[in-house]
Write a protein that binds this DNA or RNA. Structure first.
Length: 292
DNA sequence: CAAACTACCTGACTGC
DNA sequence: TGCAGTCAGGTAGTTT
């Protein structure tokens, strides 16, 4: 389940291994991951062939590789996507979806592989997207971005009525945060995810943003998170940040601060984990529909 | 514009 | 052994 730290690890790997090599050919083994390229897989492959990647950039959980044409290859890993840099003679992965060969791939050079079991992720060709693909212009900057506008984000959070967890997951407000790091950051900040944005103090929002940065930095230092081996970094090595999770996936385990068992509740068709003692729910709960 | 909900997808796992 | 059901969850799109 790649979130910002995992995607950043992948970006660094791509930056180190696939720049400035001419693409010799692209093989699309499953149409779904290139579904956003309306002209079809063959056109997708043709447009990349002969081009070179000049950089590896990221915004939130999106990655893109600018091309020497000013266009870009845009990627999102979704739930289970991987970008693997492999020797051309390495056996195909079970869920290999797209292969990008370079002119030196048969001479010991690498090949780039997009592997994705669940196919929530995908690749697309971003016309004119070298600087920032227009497809992702709505994605906000992440809290580690040097241009992240903290005061603006705090102000926007405090104008919203949704719970703070929902807001942390809103990629148009703050990017890069997924379910795992949202729960971890809220635990660190001792905030319950149902607390409404417009009822938080500036200091509360600042604290949870600090916590987001802390959790992400920690994960980045360890090379990303891995829970089920679906996420593997660009060279195929799993991260292991899951050893230091305090809330996510810890149902029934004692809170590291107070010992109260961590609780799990349903949230947006997924789960939220929190400490019921450290993270007090809001006093006034949202109106709940009740049967008369 | 904001909020809330759904579809999309596969595989591991559980219960009968 | 099989099969239906549940869960994992980021994003785009739709509806309210």
């Amino acid at each position: 389940m790649p979130e910002l730290p995992e995607v950043e690890v992948v970006r660094r790997g791509l930056e180190a291994h696939v720049l400035d090599r001419a693409v010799a050919g692209v093989e699309v083994l499953h149409p779904r991951p290139v579904r956003r390229h309306l002209a079809g897989p063959a056109d997708f492959a043709a447009r990349l062939t002969g081009r070179r990647f000049t950089a590896a950039r990221r915004r939130g959980k999106y990655l893109w590789l600018p091309l020497d044409t000013g266009d870009a290859l845009l990627a999102h890993l979704g739930m289970s996507g991987q970008m693997l840099v492999q020797p051309a003679d390495a056996p195909d992965e079970r869920h290999l979806r797209v292969r990008v060969r370079f002119v030196d791939s048969d001479a010991g050079g690498p090949e780039l592989r997009f592997v994705d079991q669940r196919m929530f992720g995908g690749l697309s060709y971003a016309e004119g997207g070298a600087t920032l693909p227009h497809e992702i212009a709505h994605i906000a900057r992440d809290p580690l971005d040097t241009d992240f506008d903290e005061a603006d984000v705090i102000a926007r959070v405090r104008r919203r009525t949704s719970g703070i967890k929902r807001l942390l997951l809103d990629q148009g407000l703050v990017s890069g945060v997924g379910n795992i790091y949202a729960d971890e950051a809220l635990w660190r900040a001792r905030l319950h995810g149902e607390r409404r944005g417009d009822r938080l103090r500036r200091a509360d929002v600042a604290e949870v943003l600090d916590a987001v940065r802390a959790v992400m930095t920690s994960a980045l230092d360890q090379g990303g998170t891995s829970f089920d081996a679906l996420y593997v970094n660009v060279n195929g090595e799993s991260g292991y940040f899951d050893r230091s999770l305090h809330a996510y996936g810890q149902e029934g385990e004692p809170c590291a601060r107070c010992g109260t068992p961590i609780r799990r509740v349903a949230f947006m068709n997924r789960s939220s984990y929190f400490c019921p003692t450290c993270q007090k729910p809001p006093r006034s709960r949202r109106p709940v529909s009740r049967v008369p």
